Amino acid sequence: MMNEFVQKLFELCHGTKFLSACNERRKRSKLNFKTASEYINKLPRYFGRLLVIRIDLHLPQDNKEMQVDELKRRFGTFLQKIRRKRSLNLKGYIWKLEYGFHQSFHYHCLFFLDGRKHAQDIKLAQMLGDIWDQIIEGKHCYFNCNHPKYLKRYQQPITGRLEPYDTEKYDLLLNQVIRYFCKKDQFIVHKSIANKKRFETARLPYVKKRLGRPRTQTA
Rank of each mutant, 00 (worst) to 15 (best):
K139R: 15
K139C: 10
M127S: 14
H108S: 09
I136K: 01
L128F: 07
E137M: 12
K117D: 13
C109L: 08
G115I: 02
K117H: 12
G115R: 00
Q126T: 13
Y107H: 05
H118Y: 07
W132Q: 03
K123P: 09
A125G: 13
H108C: 08
I131R: 00
M127H: 15
G129R: 03
A125P: 02
G138Q: 06
H108W: 09
H118Q: 06
Y107C: 01
E137L: 12
H118I: 07
G115E: 02
Y107K: 05
D121E: 13
K123Y: 15
R116D: 12
A119N: 10
Q134V: 07
L113S: 09
L110D: 00
K139A: 11
I135D: 03
K117A: 15
I131T: 14
I131Q: 08
K139M: 07
K123N: 15
G129W: 01
Q120T: 12
M127G: 07
D133G: 03
G129H: 01
H118K: 10
I131W: 03
L110F: 05
K123H: 13
L128Q: 07
I136Q: 05
A125K: 04
I131G: 03
Q126K: 12
Q120K: 14
I135T: 05
A125I: 03
L124V: 11
F111D: 01
W132C: 03
R116W: 15
L113V: 08
H108T: 11
C109K: 00
Q120A: 14
G138R: 02
A119M: 08
D130H: 10
D133N: 10
M127Q: 14
Q134D: 10
M127W: 09
